[in-house]
Amino acid sequence: MKSLKILISLIVFALFLSVGISNSIADEKDGKAIVDSKKCGSCHKMQGPPDKTIADVLKRKAPDLFYAGSKFKTEWLEKFLQKPTIIRPAGTVYLNNIKMGDKKDEIGDVKPCASNVSAKEAHEVTEYLMTLKEPTMKTGVIVDESFSKAKAKVLFGQKEGCSGCHRDKADSGGTSCPTLYNAGERLNPDWVFDFLKNPQKYDPKIWMPRRELSDEDFMLLAKFLASLK
């Protein structure tokens, strides 16, 4: 009698699991169909390889998404797709959006992606985008949140000068690169670690050069960014 109960429980569990998996696969397919119908690929690169020349980078209209599933956090992506905001204050390629002045340059007109979707569509598109992975990225690297905030701040602000190009607060920091004051909500810390180790692996011509730091320091920066929410 007891074994019969266990067997029934197992069957019910397996059924739930298979329904869950098939729902997820269905969402993934629907998400791909939405991405195709909205022509997301006309602005975003949905497949590698990344741009290899400056001329190609200058034609870029929106960030590459072919490793979105490694880069983003699911919850953030689903919300963002419903109401896109500006992540790069000077646009995807800052050089295309600056007003060149005699003494100083200013940021021109930058608008967020106009192609928002409904909550249901956002869920489906997220399911699809999260399948787009960078195959060489290691997962499970950043396993805990403990780090020295004081050391991280020195590394970020002084030693490596990250704040020169990135906003680490809503009202301070550089503007040519993505804002980081909400990086903890947006980015997968394992991806941050992998990207920091070699930004040119993801984007050979990106205007962020590789730093020669120890894995310990890269991990410190990844944890620091994960704490910015």
């Binding site: 000077a90 800052y94 002045g101 100083k104 340059d105 040519s176």
Partner: peptide
């Protein structure tokens, strides 16, 4: 853009 130090990041 003129090379004179007036880039968009200069203020930071």
């Amino acid at each position: 853009s003129k090379g004179s130090g007036g880039g968009i990041n200069a203020a930071a």
